[in-house]
Design a protein around this nucleic acid. Sequence first.
RNA 1: GCCGGCGUAGCUCAAUUGGCAGAGCAGCUGACUUGUAAUCAGCAGGUUGCGGGUUCGAGUCCCAUCGCCGGCUCCA
Length: 646
Amino acid sequence: MVKIRFPDGTERSYPDATPIRDIVDGLGGRLKKEALAAQVDGVIKDLSFCLKNDAALKFLTFEDADGAGVFHHTSSHILAQAVKRLYPGVRLGIGPAIKDGFYYDFDREESFTPEDLEKIEAEMARIVEEDLPMERFELGREEAIAFFSALGEDYKVELIRDLPEDTIISCYRTGEFVDLCAGPHLPSTGSVKACKLLSLAGAYWRGSGENPMLQRIYGTSFPKKSLLDQYLHRLEEAKKRDHRKLGRELDLFSVHDEAPGFPFLHPRGMIIRNELEKFWREQHALAGYQEIKTPIILNRVLWERSGHWDHYKENMYFTRIDEQDFAVKPMNCPGSMLLYRLDLHSYRDLPIRLAELGLVHRHEMSGTLHGMMRVRAFTQDDAHIFMLPSQIKEEVAAVIELTDRIYSVFGFDYHVELSTRPEKAMGSEEMWELATTALREVLEERGMAFIINEGDGAFYGPKIDFHLRDSIGRTWQCGTIQLDFQMPEKFDLHYIGEDGQKHRPAVIHRVVYGSIERFMAVLIEHFAGAFPAWLAPVQAVVIPITDRHHAYAASVLKRLREAGIRAESDTRSEKVGYKIREAQLQKIPYMLVVGDKEAEAGSVAVRERAGGDRGSVEVSEFINALLGEIAASQLRCPETTIDRAL
RNA sequence: GCCGGCGUAGCUCAAUUGGCAGAGCAGCUGACUUGUAAUCAGCAGGUUGCGGGUUCGAGUCCCAUCGCCGGCUCCA
């Protein structure tokens, strides 16, 4: 007998080698129908898995992220099987579950077309209809290689050869189709009721540009058609928040064929940007930063010294001035280093925090450009912190706090990644180890969740990255904290220590917004264009009912503007409904309707963007309320910031 | 940069097997003087991304190029 413990704490005994499926069938209820797989002592297993030892057992349904993963993974096998049936010569790459779906990579001479996808979808439906059981079996290493070699599946053979020696090599069979796979899987193909292939894309084998490019088919699947429809609807809704669409509709920015990757900011977009910068300057002054500005074009010699010439040249733009080579800066650090080096620094002066809203240019590959999210010129809200080695952890922690505070004003959720030494790196292994450990310790001491991004550090040091989510769930790196022992060496920076000797300072490179352009893009999608009043390009619009109210409207507008409120008046000869509709579509926070009653009472009839008609109030009352709202929403001057600066 | 898809009026989209480039919204003009999400009428708007080719004839087919979209790679 084996003793099985369930999540609710109950325990039951079953005969040795009872398949999990029998247990769930015995329990009956909702789970009997919905269980897709199970966690045995935390390890995900097929329902056909036989329990031979005492264990904690948790059933997984589509509601569980792991359960959905199993469901999608099985869907990807069905996709591969359908493709093999329709196009027998195709060789298989890999086909994992991903967030909200799955993909499979195929190697085929001809390109798949959208029509092919329809055919494949239809064949997948047939495989689901056939309700083929998913049978797991294991092969020895040589057996497996022989098996997939015979099938001509060279990529699978390559995968097997690269598996660690002690790996159990398992395969799953559905009807005539067998795929190399660690599993687990659904018991059969029948439960994948609703399946949709979404897109087609090229993808390098094993993610390396050196390798051949395969054709990747993306899809998603659900246990019910209604869930699929819901998902597709959600996707449609999310696309309406796309910053490129809202940027045009709200007249915030544009991109032009004449300048790919270099967005133009319109007057309304500029207001948002200026508000962001204003807020940023306040926060950084409080946190003890000083602002500088360094040149955009600097001599080649500087870039050779900093290492950019060797490590970053392919991303840089160059020019010649008076027969000398210059480069347009892709980063702000070298300029900042020059400034630090200008003076002699005492250990008592450290840390020195030099902040710069620096415009950098990078030659990004054309295929990667994306609205304002990924561009070729952007402004980093940069800062370089020069400090004693003993101050590293404290300063890193302070930057994390500042970032968290600023993000929280916007209501962003974010996740954190720690990126380690890349292949093309400067400096010794020991230095990297030291720097990486310091960053890791700060994160751990603060109890922050983070994932490790192996080999993704900057060429001069490891980094902590803050990622924000766009409207359709893609994440974009915004804030980053990079620890650097290289630039101080390269630029021979030093400070005079207590002992009167020269010592090497450590440097942190950091950004909070990341790039103001990208941050604005994320912001637009986050608020779906409906900005809080402090950021809204137009905070209030006055709507006179008829021409005879224009004079009063003008007087209200004047008072609003004198109070520092960004306001406009809509004096077109249109009906109130028309003007309101327009203002709603422009997502203006407040609409102030003025007619006879208001003109007489010196009031405005307030309509809130979100809340609708709020009735009439005195003009001064409205102004005070709005100014109060603006001040409150920025949560300025929290005590912790002031403490730190002192 | 690579793979696939797409470029028609300011925006959203039509145009049959290759056969006269069109609609709504926005814009302009006029009328209407309006009380919380679209008043009516008229006018104007185009070298179909750009450049070649096939054809009696190309928005439509072919080639090349630029840009955009979705991915891959890379990155703030």
